[in-house]
Structure formats: structure tokens, C-alpha cells
Computed example of a mutant assay.
Amino acid sequence: MMYTEEIPLDPSFINVLSWLRRKSVGYLKDKARIRKEDHKEREILEERKRRILKELSMAYFPEKLNKVFKKASSILDAQKSALQACGYIVFDFPGRTESRLIVGMANDIFGKQVFEVGLSWDPLLNLPYIPASSLKGAFRSYIEMEKKDLASLLGTKEEASSIVFLNAYPINSRYNLLVPEVTTPIYKEQEGKIRETEAEPSPITYLAINKDVAFRIIVGVKLNGKAVYDQLRYLLQDMLKRGVGAKTLLGYGVMELS
């Protein structure tokens, strides 16, 4: 039987979530064992984490992902047909990341135990994705700020929303789909307080979605007419330029409709 370390990672036939969990068992045990002052062992531990990140990034090279992207498109086609069968006018907008994208940082499913930062992840497709709730939440915030007269379309406590968003999946990538990202916080909050005397740079490495990744953004609307399409496209375009996901104030998550 081959050990996990000997199995080359390929998203088209290996469950990446299971691979990561098995790969991380020894790392997490050593992390709990090694003391903070053992700098040499901690550096070795960090190098192991960097290797895991590199393996994941290299496994998501565009040419390796054709089968995975086709599966994602097939599922989106089926969901699109289901919306149409339910009486929705369905708009299928192609979008592309203009900067790196981080979505689901607090998500426990993928990456958080090892990298301290999570990523929204579909364990069956082996792909990161933008949750429908994130898209609708960003759209609602945008509408409430810029187009308050349309806010009722998104529903109230008394009425269901006239607009439905689907999860957005990547379907193409110009570069490696996943890339290592580094954040270096200086302060750590302890018991609700930040102590200046304990300030220390602590690099955190994790995965982000790369720029130049194509997503399908599918929206179902219970309204008619080309005017709705044009208006919805304009609103989505403007919203996506402001960013989706985490760290948008720092320029992350900027997208453009094709």
C-alpha cells in the first residue's frame, strides 16, 4: 500500500480534501508537540506546510483540470435547467477574477486546521467556489447602498426573493488555479485584549484563488424582458468591480464580467 506522501496529487481522480487531511495528520501532531521556543523545529514545521501548499498549487495547473472543469460546467448546466423548469428566467454570466480571490476564510471544511485560513471548497468536484450566499450577500449590500428602490427584489421577511443565485464554479484558468498567499499579522488578541509588549510578526501562509480564473455566475429571476437582463448585468458588473469575498478593501476579489 502506498503512503499518502508517495501519491502524486491529481484532482481528476483523487479526493483532494481527503488527501489534505491525511497529509496533515503528522504535521498537526508535531505542531501540538513542538514548543514555541523551539525555533529550529518550528522552521522545519513551517517548511512542511510550505511543501503542502506547493503540492496543492502545482496540482491545480490548468492543463490538469480539464476533466474537473467539465464536471463543474455539467453540474451548472443541470442546475440552470432546473431553475428554468421552475419558471425562472436564467442568466448565465461569464466572469473572471482580476485579482486574487479569498472566500470562506472561516470555513472549517478545507484548509483551516493546517493553514489557519479556510477556503470555500466542493469536496466532490475538488474545486474552490464562490457560495451563492456570498454572491447574494454582496449583491444585497450593493443594492441597499446604490439602488434602494430594487431592494425588495431580494426578498423580505414576508416575501420570497425574486432573484436566485447559484454557487459560482471556476471553469477555466489561465495560470495555476490555486496559489500560496501570505499574511503577516503583528498583533494577536488574547482574552479580548491586544498587548503591545507581545507584538511579533507571525507569517500565515494559506491558499487563495488566482487571478485570471473564469467563473460561471448563474442568476435566476422571476421577471421578464431584455431590460431586466441589461440592468442585472450592469448591477452585477458594478458589484463585482468592488470585490467579492474577504479582504476586498485590500484589492482582493475584484471580478469582471466577460
Results as ranks from 00 to 15, higher is better:
G220E: 04
V117C: 01
P203K: 07
E189F: 11
K148S: 12
A160T: 10
T197V: 12
A227T: 07
L125C: 02
S152K: 07
Y229C: 03
S133W: 07
S202R: 15
L124S: 08
A132L: 08
S162C: 05
D230R: 13
F215H: 09
A214T: 13
R140Y: 05
A160E: 12
N176K: 09
K226E: 15
Q113A: 14
S161P: 00
Y229K: 12
Y175H: 10
S120M: 08
N126C: 03
Y229F: 14
A132T: 03
A151P: 00
E196P: 12
D212Y: 15
L223C: 02
P123L: 03
G220C: 07
L124H: 10
I204W: 06
N172A: 13
E159S: 06
D122P: 03
N224D: 13
I171N: 05
N224T: 12
V182M: 10
E159A: 09
L119C: 06
E196F: 14
Y129R: 03
E159G: 01
A160R: 14
S161Q: 00
E196T: 14
D149R: 11
V213C: 07
E198H: 05
E158M: 12
Y206W: 09
K222F: 06
E200Y: 15
G137F: 05
Y187F: 15
S133H: 05
T205Q: 08
Y175A: 07
F165W: 06
I217L: 01
V117D: 00
L178E: 05
S134T: 11
S152W: 12
G192T: 11
T197K: 12
E181T: 09
N176G: 04
D149V: 12
V219L: 03
N210V: 09
P185I: 02
G192F: 12
I163R: 02
K226M: 15
W121C: 03
L127K: 00
V221A: 06
G137D: 01
R174E: 12
T184F: 02
P123K: 06
T197C: 08
Y229Q: 13
D122C: 01
V117S: 02
P128R: 08
A160I: 10
E200G: 07
S134G: 03
S141P: 01
V117I: 13
G118N: 01
V213Y: 02
F165K: 05
K147W: 08
Y169R: 01
I204E: 02
R174Q: 08
L223S: 02
Q237E: 15
L166C: 06
K147A: 10
A168P: 06
V228H: 01
I130S: 04
T183S: 13
K226V: 13
A227W: 11
V213M: 04
A227M: 11
S173D: 07
L177A: 04
L236W: 02
K148L: 13
K136M: 07
S133E: 09
P128M: 08
R140E: 07
G192A: 10
V219E: 01
Y142I: 08
P131H: 02
L154Y: 03
G155C: 09
I130T: 09
M145I: 06
